[in-house]
């Protein structure tokens, strides 16, 4: 159950960033590999089989998003993307291409460690899907298709349940507007973000004690939504 000892590959061309990432991660028991550009990063991702990749989007030889797309062609390894502020569109693209999380530079080590840990835990828990998902007072019984809030059953429409199901399947991970729309309404509706927003408002009204201050169905501003993972719930609330 421990993430300590996991092998992490850092792909960043800035030596100072690599240095503090190595010191911070090694200090917490991780094994750290370093690559300075896209080519070396992809090569090491194949040869050294890391369990997690920290990928800077501003690489000298190739766009980090290209690297992510290529990597996703053959690997499901968790990828944590690093980028500068003010690049919201890039953030959405990174998630759409299959990034697991996103950290904006400059960032603190504590924040990065928390995200590394969460990504690795999701990865390891992913294989064995529990039949009942629980976070705080929310309980989703995937076998019986039943939803309980603080012990009381909640009626959801089939579409609402499908949206919740998609979020439960990736609990703790951000799903983009496009991914959710695709999953629940099909590929023809990938652009109907406003529709999704109104739909989420309705779902929150059923699940959340205070829909304006949600505790389970969280918004990732401009990107999508995330269902709070059980292990994140206590630190957040």
């Amino acid at each position: 159950m421990t993430e300590v000892g996991a092998r992490v590959l850092v792909v960043d061309d800035e030596p100072q960033i690599r240095r503090f990432l190595r010191l911070g991660l090694e200090g917490h028991g991780y094994e750290v590999l370093e690559a300075t550009d896209a080519r070396e990063g992809l090569r090491m991702a194949v040869a050294r089989q890391p369990e997690l990749l920290i990928l800077d989007l501003g690489l000298p030889d190739r766009d980090g998003l290209d690297v992510l797309a290529e990597l996703r062609g053959w690997s499901t390894i968790p990828v944590l993307v690093l980028s500068a502020r003010g690049r919201e569109a890039e953030k959405v693209r990174a998630f759409d291409l299959g990034a697991d999380d996103y950290v904006v530079k400059p960032f603190g080590m504590a924040e990065l460690l928390a995200r590394v840990k969460a990504a690795l835990r999701r990865r390891r828990a992913g294989a064995a899907t529990e039949p009942v998902f629980r976070v705080g007072g929310l309980e989703v019984d995937l076998g019986r298709r039943a939803v309980l809030v603080d012990g009381a059953p909640v009626r959801l429409s089939p579409k609402q349940y499908r949206l919740l199901q998609a979020l439960v399947a990736h609990a703790g991970k951000v799903l983009t507007h496009g991914q959710l729309l695709n999953e629940v309404w099909g590929p023809a509706h990938r652009e109907d973000i406003q529709y999704l927003r109104v739909f989420v408002r309705k779902l929150r009204a059923r699940l959340e004690a205070d829909p304006a201050r949600p505790r389970y169905l969280l918004t990732e501003l401009g990107v999508g939504y995330r269902l709070c993972a059980p292990d994140q719930f206590d630190t957040l609330h």
Binding site: G86, E88, R197, V198, R201, A205, D210, P211, A212, R213, L221, G222
Partner: peptide, 19 residues
């Protein structure tokens, strides 16, 4: 202290500028 009514209308805004 936060007071956010749940029945606010949706607004036409730029998320990131407002944030």
């Amino acid at each position: 202290e936060v007071s956010l009514p749940a029945d606010l209308p949706m607004l036409r805004l730029d998320l990131f500028l407002m944030e």
